[in-house]
Every structure is written in structure tokens, then in C-alpha cells.
Simulated assay, not measured.
Amino acid sequence: MPDGTTPLLLRADGDHGVTRLVLNRPEARNSLSFAMLGALADALAGIAADPRVRVVVLAAAGPVFSAGHDLREITAHRADADGGRAFFAAAMRRCAEVMQAVVALPQPVIAEVQGIATAAGCQLVATCDLAVAVEGARFCTPGVDIGLFCSTPAVALSRAVAAKPAMEMLLTGAMIGAEEARRIHLVNRVVPAAELEAATMELAARIAARSAHAVRVGKAAFHRQRGLPLDQAYEHCAAVMTENLLAEDAAEGIGAFLGKRTPVWKDR
């Protein structure tokens, strides 16, 4: 925590089952320190088990979404007896666990990007299921500029955008604007700063109005099939859809559609 009392991560449970998590370390550009990653991990674990949460919005305080790993913290651990090896390995492992927790979370996660997202901060945006950014937002993976290739951010980036734009970002460290980020599919929408929270929450509310059961099984199936050969992907998703069709919400939703009425979800 910055001063021993200010939380690193703020949580607000709002209407329609939308929960906001806010990175709250603006004085350090919301860098992903070991403690910040721990706070994220704990919050995600709690949300995963909370059926009241239907969608998560991940936002940040201050002018920067996240500058990535805390380079001051990393530098301080070079004085460790092992030159920092154990801490570096633990930090990379914890970061990877958090990114995987976002993907594995039953609820969709929307990044609300109000400023710059660099290195592991850009990785976090790429990891989220959806992203809404302000017109002035910028993104980069600049590790190559300081002799540290953004190898772990490359995992998320290469899964969010095509190989060549991802490699250009990784090899040059160049900053790209919000419109370019939308063009390469790093973000979904770009809006004026004054509309950012409203636009993000509108998107979140639209998703939250759907069957939570269908969204949960759909998100899991989407991420699972991406790593499978085509035939196995269809086999897996056909099995998922079969089970989904047997669920109460599917029967309700289809019945409501045919009967021209609004469905009443039971989320099962």
C-alpha cells in the first residue's frame, strides 16, 4: 500500500451485478508491484466464487492505466544474495497467475483504459475479454528499449492481435494510439474521455443482462477452443452446446424468444 493505509485495489459492487476493480497506485503509475499483483489475485479469487458478480470492469486511478512491472522494486532486488533471481522468478510467476486468473474467471472482464498502458499494463489490457479506451489512450511493449524483451506480455498480445502487429510492437517498443489499437483489435471501442465510464458500464450492463450460466460456459469454451485443432475445437464446442441446451436458461430463453416475451433467467 502506498502509505500503509490506502488500498492498492478498490472494489465497488454496483447495479446489475457489475463489479469495478480499480488499480489504486497512481503515484507509481499503477505499476504491477508484487503486492499489487497479490491484491489482484485475491480479488479475482473472491469474485470467481461470488455468484452475484456477473461482469467485472478493471479500471485505474490517475492518468495512467498501468506502467507494467515496478522497475524500482525490481532494481532493489538486484541487491539480494542471488542477484534477484528468486524474486524475479516469483514476480513473473505471480504475474502469469494473475493473467491466467483473468482468463479463467467465470465472469467476463472489461478493461476501462483511461490513459497509457505499457509493458505488463498492456499485457493486462490484452488479457481482458474486452477493452474500452479513451481517444487519448496509448499502448506499447517497450521492454526492448531497456534491454528487457516483453516476453510475458507477448503471450497475451499475440493472442489478442495478429502476429505481425504484435511483433512490431514487441520489436520496436513503439507507442500506438487508441485508434491503431482498435484497428489491430487490442481494444474494442474508443470513446471521448468524458464518456469512458458510461460507455464501459453500458457494455457491462448489456452483458450482465444475459444468462450468467450461458456467459460462463461460453467464455470458458471460447478460450478452450482457441488452443485446439479445428476438429477438436468443434468437438469440444459441440459438447458444450449440447450441455448448454439442456440447461434451464436455454429452455427459458428459447421459449421466451418463441413466445415473444422477456426471459427470466435462473442462471442455471
Rank of each mutant, 00 (worst) to 15 (best):
R54E: 04
P63R: 01
D80K: 06
V22G: 06
D80N: 12
E73K: 01
D42I: 00
V56P: 02
A43H: 05
D42Q: 09
A43T: 12
A43N: 05
L58H: 04
S33M: 09
M36W: 05
S33P: 05
G68F: 04
S33D: 04
I47H: 04
S31C: 14
S66G: 01
V57A: 09
R52D: 13
D42G: 00
L21P: 08
A76C: 01
H77S: 03
A60W: 07
G38A: 05
T75F: 13
L32T: 12
P26F: 10
A79G: 08
N30A: 11
R78P: 00
S33I: 09
R72L: 14
S33R: 15
G46D: 14
R29G: 00
F34N: 11
V18M: 08
D80A: 13
R78L: 07
A61V: 00
L21T: 09
L58A: 02
G68C: 07
L37D: 13
P26Q: 10
F65A: 08
P26G: 05
A67L: 04
T19I: 06
S33Q: 11
G38Y: 11
A48V: 01
P51A: 13
L32F: 14
G17A: 09
G46N: 09
R54H: 02
A59E: 13
A59G: 12
A39H: 07
F65Q: 06
R52L: 06
R78I: 00
D50G: 03
D50R: 01
A59K: 03
R29D: 13
R52F: 04
V57F: 06
A59N: 09
F34W: 14
L44H: 10
D42Y: 00
D42N: 02
V57M: 14
V55Q: 01
L32W: 14
S66V: 03
A76S: 13
A28L: 15
G62H: 10
R72W: 06
R72H: 12
L21S: 00
A60R: 04
L40A: 04
R72F: 11
G17I: 03
V18A: 10
A39W: 07
G38T: 07
R29I: 03
H77C: 01
L58I: 01
S31Q: 15
R20K: 14
L71P: 03
M36A: 10
G68A: 08
